[in-house]
Nucleic acid binder design. Structure first.
Lengths: 188, 188
DNA sequence: ATTCTTAACGCAAAATATTTGCATTAAGGC
DNA sequence: GCCTTAATGCAAATATTTTGCGTTAAGAAT
C-alpha cells in the first residue's frame, strides 16, 4: 500500500490556496496586530478550526505564506557580465526586502519557531547566488563563493533591515559589492 | 506644574519588576508557544489586564524583557590589545546569541512591531564597539570603525543564527575577524 | 502634613479567539 | 465502485483579550 504524507488532491489543495490568498490579501491591507485567524478563515470561506489544525497558529501561517511569497518566480537576470548579474540581483533583493512589506515578510519568516520557512528563505537566496556563480565559471570569470556573498553582502543588508539602524540604499549596497571585489583583487 | 510621562514610583515599578521576573522565569522554563499572558500574570501576582494595558500584547512584553536581558552589565573586557579585545567581545557575543536562549531573545526583539527593543539592542552592540574603538585610538592602534565591524562580523553572525543555515563556531568568527584585518593591511 | 489630580491597578463582565469531540466529506489506494 | 482515513465542518467547551468602572497610590500643589 502506497503511503502519502499529505494529501495533495482537490479539496485540500483548494483550501490551502484560498487560505494563502486570503492571508496575503489581509497582510497587504492591514497591520499584523489587526489580523486574526477568524478573519482569514472568513475571507477564505473556511472554518477557523481548519486553519488551527493545519497551521497551528497565526504565526506559522504567516511564516508559511511569507516564505511562499518570497519564493522567486524565475532565475536571476542574465545581464551579460558576472559583476552586473550580481549587482542587479543584490539591488533588487535589497529594494524588495527593505520595503515595508518585505521587512514584514522577513519578520514573519524569522518569528516562527519552526524554521522551515527560514530555511526555505535562505535556500532561495543561495540558489540564486549559485546560478550566478555557475554562469561566472561558464564565462571563465573569477569563481564566486555564495557563502562569501551571503556574509559580505546579504547579511549586512538583512541586519540593517531587521534592526532598522540605517538606511539600506542602492549606494550602500554597491559599497558592499565593491568591498567584495577588493578580496578577489587584493593587489589592486 | 511638573510633568511626568510615566510614573516611576513604588507600586508601578514593583509591578514592572515582578512581571519582568515572572516572564524571564517562564521563558527559561517553557517554549514560547506555551507561554501566555495569564500565566505570567499569575506568577507575577498581577491581573492580566494590567499586562495588556501596559505592554499591549505578549510579543511586546517578550521584546521588552529580551532587550533588558540583552543589556550588557559592564564594558567589554580590556584584554590589553585591540585585536584581542575585539576577538573576546565577538566570541562572547556569538556564543551568547547562538545558544537557544540567545536565539530566542533575538527573535523576540525582532518580532515586535515597535522597534524600540531592536533599537536598544543594536545600540548596545554599537556602544561596545565604540568603547573598543576608543581604546584602540588611545593606544595609537589602527582606527576601528564600528559600522564596519557590524557589517563584516556582527551581521553575518546574526544572519546565520537567525536563519539557521550554518553553525556559528568560534573558528568561523575568527575567520570573519581575519577577513577584517585584510582590509586594514591590504599589502599583507 | 494634607489635599488634589490622575496614572495605574484590580475586578468582573463581555467579547474574541482557540481547542476539542464528533459527524461528514472526499482523496488516494485497491 | 469500495475501502480506509486524512481533512474538513460544526458546535460546544476553554482560554484569552478587551472594556467599563470603582479603587489605590504617585507626584504636584498648597
Amino acid at each position: 500500500m502506497g503511503r502519502e504524507l499529505v494529501r495533495q488532491g482537490g479539496r485540500s489543495a483548494r483550501i490551502q490556496r484560498e487560505v494563502h490568498a486570503a492571508t496575503q490579501s489581509l497582510v497587504g491591507r492591514f497591520d499584523r496586530s489587526a489580523i486574526t485567524v477568524p478573519m482569514i478563515a472568513d475571507l477564505a470561506g473556511v472554518t477557523p478550526s481548519t486553519i488551527y489544525r493545519r497551521w497551528g497558529d497565526l504565526g506559522s501561517l504567516l511564516a508559511d505564506v511569507a516564505s511562499e511569497k518570497l519564493r522567486p518566480i524565475s532565475d536571476p537576470d542574465d545581464t551579460g557580465s558576472t559583476a552586473s548579474d550580481l549587482e542587479a540581483f543584490v539591488l533588487q533583493y535589497a529594494e524588495e526586502m527593505s520595503s515595508k512589506v518585505g521587512r514584514d515578510l522577513l519578520r514573519d519568516v524569522l518569528a516562527d519557531a519552526e524554521d522551515t520557512a527560514a530555511t526555505k528563505c535562505w535556500r532561495y537566496t543561495y540558489d540564486h547566488l549559485e546560478t550566478i556563480a555557475a554562469r561566472a565559471s561558464a564565462r571563465g570569470d573569477a569563481p564566486l563563493e555564495p557563502g562569501l556573498i551571503i556574509d559580505r553582502v546579504i547579511a549586512p543588508i538583512c541586519f540593517h533591515i531587521l534592526f532598522g539602524d540605517r538606511d539600506v540604499s542602492a549606494d550602500y549596497c554597491r559599497g558592499l559589492l565593491a568591498g567584495l571585489r577588493a578580496v578577489d583583487n587584493p593587489a589592486e
